[in-house]
Each structure stands twice: as C-alpha cells, then as structure tokens.
Nucleic acid binder design. Structure first.
Lengths: 235, 235, 235, 235
DNA sequence: CATGAATGAGCGTTCATTCAT
DNA sequence: TATGAATGAACGCTCATTCAT
C-alpha cells in the first residue's frame, strides 16, 4: 500500500495552507510535508477500510500515523478533505480513461477500431485497478451509502463512474453492438457484476484464480450483451 | 412502509427482556409493546436510509418515533439489536427461499423440473422484494461496509445471501446448466448485476420501465450464462 | 447572591427543552430543575464577575455548580444563552421602570407631578439596584466591550438603557427643565457618572458612606460641582 | 492610526529580548525590528478594538500584521506584553500630566494660578486624547473588566487614572474650590461622565458637534444640569 | 533571524447509557 | 413502566507555545 499512495498524496494540495512555503521544493521541509501527508493518507485509508469512513476518528488516524492531533488540521480541514484527497487521483484517472475511450469509439468507423478502443480501455482499467486496490476496495465498500459528510467524495466518484459507463454504453449502442436491451439496464448490470467480482477479489473471497477472472467476466458480458451468434468472439 | 414493518417487528423478540410479560398476549400491554417496537423500527429504518446506520443516534430514533429515550432501552439493548430485529424476518425469508429452491433443484431430475424450481424461486424472490423494499435498499446501501457494530446483521445477511446463491449455482452446475465458467464467478456476477439494478430502481435512478426490468435481467443472465444457442428460452 | 437569583432563574425557560415535562409543577423534578438552573446561574455569575464572560469556560461553570458537563447543555444552549437568562429579568425591570416614568412624565402638566415621577423612578431604580447588585456589576464591567458572543445580552441591555435614558431626558427637556445643553450629552454625562459611582461602590472602592451617595449624586447632577450660591436646591 | 503608533511602538522594549542587538541603532536591523514591532502593535490594536483583547488570538495578530507566527514571540513574550507595550506611552503621558498639574496646583496660591494649572492640564489632556484615540477607545472598552491576563496593563492604567484624578480633586478641595461633597464621589462622577462622553464620541454615537463637547462638559461639571441663574461662569 | 510546522492541553459539544422520579 | 434528567467519556477542533529548518 505504501507504494500505492506515494504519488497520490502529493497530488491535490490542501487549499487552506499558504501555497508559498519556506524552503526549496524537494528540500527538507518539502520532504517532511510530503511524508506527513502520505502517512496521514495511509493511516486514514487503512482505518477507513477496517472500520468505515464514518466510524474512524481523527484521534485514530493521528495515532496510526504517529503524529500529534493538531497536525492533522495543518494538512486537512477535516476528514472529508482527507477522503477527497485520497480519491481525487483515482477519479481523475477513471474520467480520463472514460473520456479517451468515448472519443476513440466516436471516431471509430469499423468494428476492429471499436474493439481496439474497448481493449485499450480495459487494459488501462486493469492498470488503474492494480494501482489503486485499497482505494477501490474502499470505494466498493461505501459507494452506495448516503453521500454525506466524509463520504461526499465517494458519492462523486460513483456518479462519475455511472456517467462514464453510460456514455460508453450509448456509444456502443450507436454502433449497433448491443442486443436490444435498455442500455441503462445493461450498463448497471455490467457495473454491478464487475464491482461485485472485484469486491470479492479484493476482500479475498474465494473467486478462483485471478488470471481467469478477466476473460470470464468479458465473456460473460459479451455473450450476454453481444448481438448475434456467440461463437466468434475472442477475448 | 407502515405495512412493510407490521409483522416483522413482532418477529424475533429482544432477548434481554424477560420473555414473560405481565398481561395476556394480545392484551393492552402486549399491544402497546408491539406498537412501540414497530414505531422504533420504522423510525430507525427511515433514518438509517437517510443518514446511514452508523450516523443515526438513539436520540434521533426516539424523537422520530415519539418515544422517550429511556424507553428505547427497554425494547432494544442498543442500535445493533434494533438492526438485527429489522433484518431478522428478511433473512429468514430469503434463507427459506434459498433452501426450498436448493432442495427442489437437488430433487429435480429433468430440465422442466429445474426450470420450475427456479421460476418458483424467482416469484417468491419478487414477492420478498416488494414486501421489503426499504429494508432491501438499506441492505444494498450498507452490505459491503465493515460489518462491525450496528452493521453486524447486515453483514450476516450478505453472507447468507452469498451462501444461498452459491448453493444454487452449484446445483445448477451439477445439472450441467452452465457454461464452463467458474461458478463462484458467475454467482458473484449475477448477484452484483441484480443488486445494482435493484438499487438503481429503489433509488429512483432512471432504469426504464419496471415491467421490462425482470425479463431484461433474466435474458441478460441466461444469454450470458446459459450453455448453447439462445433462441429457445422465453420467460 | 443566593437570594438575588432565586426568582430570576425560574424566569425565561430555555427554549430548546420540551415545555411539557413529566411530573407536576412543584414536584420533585420541577424542584430539581429549578435548583440546577439556579446553581448554574449562580456559578456562571460568580465566575463571570471574577474572570470576565469570555474567559470563563463551561468546565469551570459546571465544576463550580457541581454538576456534570453534559448537564449544562440540558439547561442552556451555550454560554450566550446563560448570560441572556441572567440578564433578562433585569432588562425587563429596567425597561418597565423607564416606560412607567416616561409615561408619567408625559402625562404630568405641573412641576410637582414631574418631580414625583422622577422620584418614583429613582426609588424603583434603587430597589432594582439592590436586588441585582452582582448582575449590575457584571453589566458595568462588560457593557462597553464588543457585544459579540456571550456578551450579546449585555450589549442589548446597554442599548436599552441608553434609549430609556434618552427618552427621559427628552421628556425633561420638553418640560423646559434643563439648561440649554445638548440633551444627548447630558444624558451620557449622567449615565457615565452614575455608572462609575455604582461601579466604585460595588467594587468596594472607597466611595464614602452609602447613604450619602444618592443625595450627593442627585445634587451633583442638579447643581453641578462649582462652588457658588446654590443653596436653593433641595432634593 | 498609523501615525498614532509610530512612536509608541519604539517606547518600552520587551524585556526578555537581549537589549543589546547586533547592528547599530537606526541601522537596517534596528529599522526592521521597529517596523515589525509597530506592525504587530497596529494589528493587535485594531483586532482588540473589534473583538476584545481576550478573544483575539496570536494567529489573528500575525496574519493581520503579515508576519510569521514564530516571529511574534521574538518581539513579545505573549499577548499581555503586547498590550503593555501598547499602553505604556499613554500611561506615562497621563501620569506626567497629572503630576505636572498636581505640582502646579500645590504651588499655586491664588485663584488665577489654579485655573491656569487646570487649563494647562485640560489642553494637554486634549492633545493626548487626539494622539491616542484608538488606544483610549480600547481602554474605555475594557477598563472595568477583571484585570487578569492580557488586561493587566489596562487595569493598571485605570488605577493610575483614578489616583491622579483623586490627587487633583484633593488639591482642589484643599484650595476650597469645591462644594462640600465627598471628593471621592465627585471625582468618580467627573471621570465617569467624561469617559462615557468620550466613549460615545469615539464610537461614533450621536453626541452632537465635537467643538461643543468640551465646553458643554465643563459647564455641566461646574454648574450642573439644573436650570437656573448661573450665567456668571464662563470658561 | 524569519519561518511555519509540530505539539498537546484544552475547549465546546454530543451521545450512549444509567437512573431517579 | 414511561419518562427525560444526569453522567462522563469521547469527539472535532483551536491555540499558545516550542522548535527544526
């Protein structure tokens, strides 16, 4: 997990701290600042996963991070901002991926181009997944709960994902790739199935060998959704 | 919702309260007891849905129920027990349905018998769904979060459902109904897709007309999972 | 001080507590409630006098009152409401007195009637002063400080007093009782002198014998300080 | 206000800082030191006036002054010392004026000399008032509150003023200038009236034209409010 | 020496739970 | 038995002060 957060923590800076800092970038102070931020993010993420965002207290976070209570508030206005900071890079990466794919799909005129676009999307999604396992687990744990307080950022991510997936489904529909189902329903079905399987995997439920997960899932989706006879598809 | 809870609340009695009460069953005191329990359950459910189980306080519940705070503890040991009481009848109904179906599947030797068993299962499931919409929404909101504290009963229900579904899938597999996927994966996929669509429906997301939901979903599942050519089935 | 607060504490009830209480008025619960409120008021007043309203913490108040911290909030929303509750009866008494006097002055057509009205006012003021010494001392200590937070009620009282005094001065002027000075200035001068002397008295500064205070002050106001032929005056 | 503080801030130096500083007096370092001290004093005074001394935090002061938090403690041990530094020059000026006047009164044997001494006193007082309006307003806001913590210096000034005024009144009494009132009472009356009017003026209450304030006040003090034949006096 | 990051005691407030009435 | 008052631990957050850079 250490590695998972290393970059993210330096991403969106808390806005209430003066942007002008003493000491050069990369200097001792800058290093300390980054380390503290990362430690708080790590501590927070671990605790959120174990107890749920709502239940975790600032006291627990700072204890886990090994810093003083007051220091938390130098880095984050409150728990909500910490969660925002945690999810911001993931949200951005996912939105990027959705946008890129939607663009490619829009521009593709032939089936091979379309499939290539989806394949690229899947590959990138796979990368994002592996780079953000803990975060995605947290998302899966909480994304349906009321998006109040500290869960605001999670709700935003859920909305973002639903939108992106709908855009993709619509694009696929335009190209006549789908069987005549309501695309809103098939989108939800795919998202639901995918999320549940990822959740099982991340929670160490027994889901078989991981290498088989992706092809199984893709086959399930395609053979369920794809229009026409179903022998031809190849992952 | 009123009706939804009427029976449930009288189901499993809190265990820390002497089961022997003064007054005859159905008498004035018994009636009062049932009414208050139901009011607390209703109030709790509504608040849990809006704010999440963790965030809701006993104060909020008793205020919503129009009951004194101290009285809460006469009926429930704590919030956890209230949630338990809420979910117990649903859990029982689902387990019943799973068991009945599994039994029927095990005893079925021919395809028609199998399909009949599944159909019965689906019909009963549909009933349960409509009789417990609020409760199921709460379940969907929270079932992946850490099952500590007040969420223990929700976690238990999740485990119960996964087990039941796995049993069913396994039974189907034994009968050679499924394409050669890891049944653990296809179970999760089906559960995930189903839950996500129900969630969307209960949350008033735009999922198209309800009448089309069930056939769409079944077709999606079957055409995705069912071995063989896919023209023959029609619900 | 005990007596000073006995009535006041039962005056304006905190508004956030349900007005319907169990138990009869005057019953044990009602007694307890009154006692607690009085204890908190006493403790608050004593501490405010010693340390200033802003500096006193809820912890100090509840410790002095000998009750649990959480109990404070059953009686008062915050420190500000406690101060409001403390000053409400005094404010009302003063406004009553001002209004009564202004009315009498307006209706008086002859000098004797006027003087009688002022005399009545002074007598009642004297009573109010003795019944509220601690409270008045607190008012004198803080009435010029910024009226934020807990001091809001004190600022309101100051405004109320200034208005009342101005009304009286204006009435006197209409009757041609005053030398041709700006009545706004003479009002302030009288208020300032009076307040400072009362403050000195309440703070146990050496201001001579109390019995001489009132006549001295009245003579000072009416005749001025200058030595000269002013034998005609009689209080 | 800028000018008002320019000199004062360089007055009494904080004692915990080595009085020997590197660099020559008036050199670059000395200049910086003086500038920062002045900026902190200005910021503090403005904030104290708006929020009250007790409520203002070091954070607010350094932010307003545009200085780092740590730097505050190089110039002042704490808020109390800042207030001391603010009031020291005013206190000194007032004491000087009182002493000078008392001395002159003591040495005067004739009425004209006495009146001249008082006149000199009044003129100097007027100057001090205009040179220290903000500071005097702060004094008037807080001088009756408990003189703990940051308010110690204000309390000291109040004591100093009372003493000086009493000395003056006593001197006047010795010369037989006053009507036979307790001089302690008349002193308080005069101080109270004066302070209240100045306070009204500085707070922009409606006190009429400023030019009329001083003569009105003097006349009020000397002649009282009573309507009558008191034409003989003229300041 | 200036800076602002770190510290932790302490504040106002909430809340689950107990208990007198 | 129903009530809501009492309790005090715990929470989120602030702030004076110290200290590394």
């Amino acid at each position: 997990m250490d590695k998972e957060l290393e970059d993210k923590a330096t991403g969106p800076k808390p806005r209430h701290v003066p942007s002008e800092r003493p000491g050069p970038v990369g200097g001792k102070r800058d290093q300390n600042r980054r380390r503290r931020t990362r430690e708080l993010c790590e501590a927070g993420l671990a605790l959120f996963l174990e107890h749920g965002t709502e239940s975790v207290t600032i006291d627990q976070i700072v204890e886990q991070a090994g810093i003083a209570k007051g220091s938390f508030y130098r880095y984050f206005k409150d728990k909500e901002e910490l969660v925002e900071t945690l999810f911001a890079p993931l949200q951005e990466a996912l939105e990027d991926n959705f946008n890129t794919c939607a663009q490619a799909v829009k521009e593709a005129s032939e089936l091979p181009g379309l499939l290539f676009a989806y394949q690229e999307f899947a590959i990138r999604l796979n990368d994002i997944f592996f780079e953000n396992r803990q975060l995605i687990l947290l998302y899966l744990q909480e994304n349906r709960a009321p998006a109040h307080g500290a869960r605001k950022a999670i709700g935003a991510l859920a909305v973002s994902i639903t939108k992106g997936a709908n855009a993709l489904t619509n694009a696929a529909e335009v190209h006549g790739l789908l069987r005549p189902f309501d695309p809103r329903v098939s989108t939800l079905a795919v998202i639901g199935a995918l999320e549940r399987i990822l959740f099982g995997f991340l929670r160490d439920e027994d889901v078989g060998e991981f290498e088989l997960l992706a092809p199984s899932l893709i086959s399930l989706i395609f053979d369920g959704l794809r229009f026409g006879d179903q022998d031809a598809h190849s992952t």
